[in-house]
Computed example of a mutant assay.
Amino acid sequence: MLVFETAAAAAAYMEPIDVRNGEYLVVFDSEGRKLGIEVGFESRPGMVGLLARRIEVVRLVPLDDRPDEAELASLLRSFLADVDGRHELAAEASLAELIRRTADVALTR
């Protein structure tokens, strides 16, 4: 499981080839909304602002305005139980606490 501070940080981390190869199964924001993963192109200035070049970029786009907190919480509980063994925390924790704990564990692995 990967955890990022922002959607922009997650998109910057993802490689377009990995997205095309299906390396990322699902992406959620911190409120439980699913985000779609797209590969597109952007123009970037070349050397000294001369020739613009097109590069592939990953974009995360909202799929639904309604959060699915239950699905995200279930994924986080499962992850925490597998890597941390703290079933009691996972069973009682709010979504915010699950996200915080997951970030703590995922960032130290």
Rank of each mutant, 00 (worst) to 15 (best):
E23V: 06
E31F: 06
H87R: 11
F41P: 01
A10V: 09
E92K: 14
S43W: 08
L2E: 14
A9W: 04
G85D: 11
R100I: 04
T102G: 01
E38L: 12
F4Y: 11
D64Y: 05
G85L: 09
S30L: 05
R44Q: 14
Y24H: 04
H87G: 10
R20K: 13
E88Y: 07
A52N: 15
D29W: 05
R101A: 11
A103M: 06
R101F: 08
V83I: 10
R100D: 15
D68G: 04
A10P: 03
G49V: 03
V57H: 01
V105E: 05
E42M: 08
V48N: 12
R44A: 09
S78G: 12
F28T: 00
E38S: 09
K34V: 06
F4K: 01
A10Q: 10
P67V: 03
Y13S: 09
L89A: 08
L80C: 02
D64H: 10
D104Q: 13
D29I: 03
H87F: 09
F28G: 00
P67G: 11
D104P: 03
R59V: 04
L25H: 13
A52M: 10
I17P: 07
I17Y: 11
R44F: 07
R33Y: 03
H87M: 09
L76M: 05
E56R: 12
D84S: 11
A7V: 04
F79N: 00
V3F: 08
E23I: 04
V57E: 01
A11G: 10
I55E: 15
D29L: 04
L89F: 13
A91C: 08
A11V: 07
E97S: 12
V27Y: 01
A106V: 09
T102F: 04
T6I: 05
V105S: 01
R53S: 13
I55Q: 15
N21F: 06
V58K: 01
